[in-house]
Design a protein around this nucleic acid. Structure first.
Lengths: 235, 235
DNA sequence: CGCGAACAAAAAGTCAGACTTATACGTCAC
DNA sequence: GTGACGTATAAGTCTGACTTTTTGTTCGCG
């Protein structure tokens, strides 16, 4: 599940990181390394390593004679999977989920189009397998099983696109789907239309029909966005 | 220009990071902290901080009794601006530039569509100003001036989209445009058609025509991709 | 000959303390 | 009020000793 549990500094990060992304220390707040080290009961060296990592995420900035200041939100490395996870665990998960889903709307259709051209036979097989798995878990409170296949499906599409930047969004999509299933009030069973669309996408990719794969995937992800907007406000 | 020049550990990063992304230490290679500290003439504490940062970028993994091993390329945090910069400075800049431009193709049209709906009057003004600035520098070897306005233009569109994830791609686009201008063999003057398109995009956004803004931006970014493919091979 | 357990070595991890350096802020002279 | 100067502060750096985990080897037993 969590990535940075390794080592003392990782443990500190998992406590301090979410605090910052949650806005517990608003941008401009100043923290002192020594004080933090005391609070988390670690040596300064360990604390410094943790601060360095937060700094590399652009969450904080460390300056002499000043301390460790929290940077404005719009400077954070919001594509860092760790940051995404921390933010999704926080209070403004809904807005976060929406931002990410909009990103999906932009990326995934294009990725599916490319996948239709570049996917190997093996990837096509895996894709249909996932789609069938989704169908199999689409009725009767099997949300967990459905989720697993859903994540795998989208990951394969992104990988099959052949574009490295798309492929690396697999983790992001996984987090979004998992967050939606676990934390949102999800309908008892997934939307049957969405299930059908996934099957059709798999078929379009196998057939090499880029245009169809793209527009079908657009429907999938637009549907996901719509579902999100139903559950939370915002225009 | 560079972000992590601050402190000794930042200096180490700027030397070691590029080496890794350049493939100088292939995935699976094992480095030892002490050895690195000696090589860069810094203390182990400083070296450890640098390694922690590389670890947070998923470039390396540090394990006891083993050392610091370079992770497979497909696990790197390729959205980290620092990593992007390192890779763009390396040998496989062409492929990198292409991946990023394909990402632009997916994201920017959607962002422009949203910008048409969400942009403030001030943002619209800035946008037209940038477009006019591009026109003004479109002829007579004024590539640097053109670049500045080009970057600003796309950054404004991404910001005006109102989507945080899009907005944070501003730096990425800036790197791509700068890389294209500085390192690729660029035509003497920018494509006149592209310049016109930018002006039209600005107008469409101001008019609130989302569909038009989206399709015009798609032309812009597809043109950029085509230009890239002309200069380097690959199917 | 194969296999498991105990052992030893290696490298990261952790800590404490002393020292250096940059810099924000207050003070004082003008 | 403005500028130069000094000082206090917190990060930055280094060193050395110690701990912990893990790998690989060796040795004994079946």
């Amino acid at each position: 599940m969590s990535t940075s549990g390794r080592g003392l500094h990782g443990h500190v990060l998992e406590r301090l990181g979410p605090s910052i992304t949650a806005g517990e220390y608003p941008p401009g707040s100043v923290l002192r390394t020594d004080e933090l080290a005391q609070r988390f009961e670690v040596s300064r060296s360990v604390m410094r390593e943790a601060v360095r990592v937060l700094e590399s995420m652009h969450l904080v900035e460390s300056r002499r004679r000043v301390g460790v200041t929290v940077r404005p939100t719009n400077e954070w490395n919001v594509y860092d999977p760790q940051v995404i996870r921390w933010r999704l665990a926080g209070a403004d998960r809904p807005r976060q989920l929406r931002s990410l889903t909009v990103l999906r709307c932009a990326v995934e259709p294009v990725a599916a189009g490319l996948a239709a051209k570049h996917a190997t036979a093996e990837q096509c097989a895996e894709l249909t397998e996932c789609a069938l798995g989704m169908v199999a878990h689409s009725r009767g409170h099997k949300l967990e099983g459905y989720l697993v296949h859903d994540i795998a499906f989208h990951r394969i599409v992104l990988n099959a696109s052949g574009n490295e930047m798309f492929a690396r969004l697999g983790d992001v999509v996984a987090e979004v789907l998992a967050g939606r299933t676990h934390h949102q009030v999800m309908f008892e069973d997934p939307d049957p239309a969405a299930v059908t669309l996934h099957v059709q996408v798999a078929e379009a990719v196998r057939a090499g029909d880029a245009g169809l794969a793209e527009s079908l995937t657009r429907e999938v992800v637009l549907g996901a966005l719509q579902e999100l907007d139903i559950l939370s406000p915002e225009g």
